[in-house]
Amino acid sequence: MQYLLDQVISGIAVGAIYGLVAMGFALIYKATGLVNFAQGEMSMITAYIAWSIAGTVSGNPWLVVGGALAASVVLGLAIERVVMRPMLGEPVFATVMVTIGLAVVLRSATLLIWDAYPHALDIGAGREIVHIGDTGVRSAQLAVMATLLLALGAFWAFFRYSRIGKAMRAVAADERAAKLMGISAARIHAVAWTASSVIAGIAGVFSALLYDVSPNMFHVGLKSFPATILGGLDSVLGSGFGGVIIGVAENLAAGYLAPSVKEITGFIVIIAMLMIRPFGLFGEREIERV
């Protein structure tokens, strides 16, 4: 029983990271209709920036977090403005390919600027071991779970109540009609990219706290992708939950079956789910009236 509990709790902690990255995927998909293949790389870059800041301010957690957030905002805005906006109105395929090119650039730039060694992100917090009953978790694990909950709440309110959130849904539904309403798609895209970059960055920093910064970090993008599909490509909140489900499923598969199954658990879960609901657990079924 304790074993199961341990597996589930650590699964949720991993899943929370997947969830955050997955929300970033869904956010961009919803606003722009694109799958951003550079999501994991964006997360990695922010983590590296956080590490650089941590090295110069000798581990003041607030400075590091603040700096990383600012960096992720700049990164998101810059990518949207410099790379994505010129592609506005071009075929979706070509635009998705651009994000793949972007991924290559960011990945190599990380190694160009920093190095190939893994490094510990030390912000003077996050590594303490906290005991919940008999289960030991690191404080950063608790923090990432709380952050996911917070992000879920924040995005729920954003889409429901904020004008820009509703406009984002409108753009997702019909971009030209949204234009006719005076909604500037470019602005919505900028908001989506920035928000996505910020949550990816947060996930990156947590991941760095828990597993060090390393040039392998971009894998989190591919790992989180099933979560987005599980939750529904266009469902930001669903993707967040999807991450947790995948995280727990992975841990249970590795814990009870064999560690080697872990890698494909997420994919098996989504194939099974797509057989039942072809548009994701929380995705919106395309409304087609003929």
Binding site: V14, H219, N251, S260, E263
Partner: peptide
């Protein structure tokens, strides 16, 4: 056990 190259989390 075996793990996939590039894996980060080893909790389970």
């Amino acid at each position: 056990g075996e793990y996939k190259k590039g894996q980060q989390d080893f909790s389970s």
